[in-house]
C-alpha cells in the first residue's frame, strides 16, 4: 500500500504574536495509506481537529507540508478548492450546517460546487443517501423537519456525494444514542468496504475505534505518540493510560485478569477476541 496523504513536519501555531500563542500540532509526521480505515484518537485539546483541518487545506500550516498523492496541497493556493473535493471532511455535529429547502438540494450542494452536470449530481445524491442509510422518501423533505440523527446522516451524505478519495469524519457518533451509534458506524464500515476508498475517523471512544479501524494513530500533547494496528496500540495499554486516554473496556478486563494471575494476553480489544483467549485458557476451542 502506498500513502495517499503524507503529513511532513506539520506545525500549527494559533495566536502568533499574542500572549495566547500556542502550538496545537507540533512537528507531526504521519502517513495515511490508500484504502485504509484509519482511526485517530486523542483527548480533548490534543490537536485532532487542527490536524484534520490541515488535510483538506482549511488551515494553512505554520510550517511543514501536506502531500496529497505526491503533490504539496499548498503548491498553488488557487487550487486549494480542488483539494477539498478530493479530501472530504465531515465536521463534528455536522447537522448544524444544513441550509437548503430540501434534503436533495442540501446533499447536492457539494457536487454542484464541483461543476458536475445534473445527471451526475442526481446519481451522486441518491447513492450518497443510500450509503448514509437514508431512504429516498426523504429527498423532498426539509432537512429541518428531520430528527437529529437523520439530519446528521444528511450532512454526512453531503460530503460523501462529492465522492472524495479520502473521507474524514470528526466524531461521527458523538451525541447519538447507542442504537444510533451502532448503525452510524455500520454505515461507515459498509461505505469503506464497498467503495474501497480511504476513511479516517476521529474519535475519543476507544471501543468504537477498536472495533472498526485497520490502524490507529494516537495523538497527545500536540503530536502523534503512537501508531499501528489496534493490537499493537492496545498492547501498550499502560502508555495510553499515561497520556490520559482510556483503553477499550474489554482490554481493561483482560488487563485485570492478567494482574490477578491469569496467563492471558491483555492486548485484546474486541469481545470476540477476549472470548477466544479465555476459551484457549480453559483448553477448549473458541
Amino acid at each position: 500500500m502506498k500513502p495517499i496523504i503524507r503529513v511532513e513536519n506539520l506545525t500549527h501555531t494559533y495566536g502568533v504574536n499574542t500572549p495566547f500563542c500556542r502550538s496545537a500540532v507540533d512537528h507531526v509526521n504521519m502517513e495515511i495509506m490508500e484504502g485504509e480505515f484509519l482511526g485517530i484518537i486523542g483527548h480533548t485539546g490534543s490537536g485532532k481537529s487542527t490536524l484534520i483541518q490541515h488535510l483538506n487545506g482549511l488551515l494553512k500550516p505554520t510550517s511543514g507540508r501536506i502531500l496529497l498523492g505526491e503533490e504539496d496541497i499548498w503548491a498553488d493556493p488557487k487550487k486549494i478548492r480542488s483539494v477539498r473535493f478530493r479530501v472530504g471532511l465531515v465536521f463534528q455535529y455536522p447537522e448544524y450546517q444544513l441550509f437548503e429547502e430540501t434534503v436533495y438540494k442540501d446533499v447536492a450542494f457539494g457536487p454542484k460546487n464541483m461543476g458536475l452536470d445534473e445527471k451526475e449530481i442526481d446519481r451522486r445524491v441518491r447513492s450518497a443517501l443510500a450509503f448514509s442509510g437514508l431512504g429516498e422518501e426523504l429527498l423532498d423533505k426539509s432537512p429541518f423537519d428531520l430528527s437529529g440523527g437523520q439530519k446528521r446522516r444528511v450532512a454526512i451524505a453531503g460530503v460523501i456525494a462529492m465522492e472524495p478519495e479520502v473521507l474524514i469524519l470528526d466524531e461521527p457518533s458523538a451525541g447519538l444514542d447507542p442504537a444510533g451509534r451502532r448503525s452510524m458506524l455500520e454505515n461507515i464500515r459498509n461505505y469503506h468496504k464497498e467503495k474501497g476508498t480511504t476513511v479516517v475517523m476521529v474519535s475519543h471512544s476507544m471501543d468504537e475505534v477498536a472495533e472498526n479501524v485497520d490502524r490507529i494513530a494516537v495523538l497527545a500533547n500536540a503530536g502523534v505518540v503512537m501508531s499501528g494496528t489496534p493490537h499493537q496500540v492496545f498492547s501498550r495499554a499502560q502508555e495510553l493510560l499515561d497520556v490520559g486516554l482510556n483503553v477499550p473496556q474489554v482490554t481493561q478486563v483482560a488487563m485485570e485478569l492478567k494482574r490477578q494471575g491469569l496467563a492471558i494476553d491483555p492486548a485484546v480489544y474486541t469481545v470476540a477476541d477476549l472470548r477466544a483467549a479465555l476459551c484457549k485458557l480453559r483448553g477448549g476451542k473458541a
Binding site: 483538506n56 477539498r84 455536522p94 450542494f109 457539494g110
Partner: peptide, 8 residues
C-alpha cells in the same frame, strides 16, 4: 469551514 469543506 464546514461549507468551505463542501467547496463553497
Amino acid at each position: 469551514s464546514a461549507q468551505k469543506a463542501r467547496g463553497a
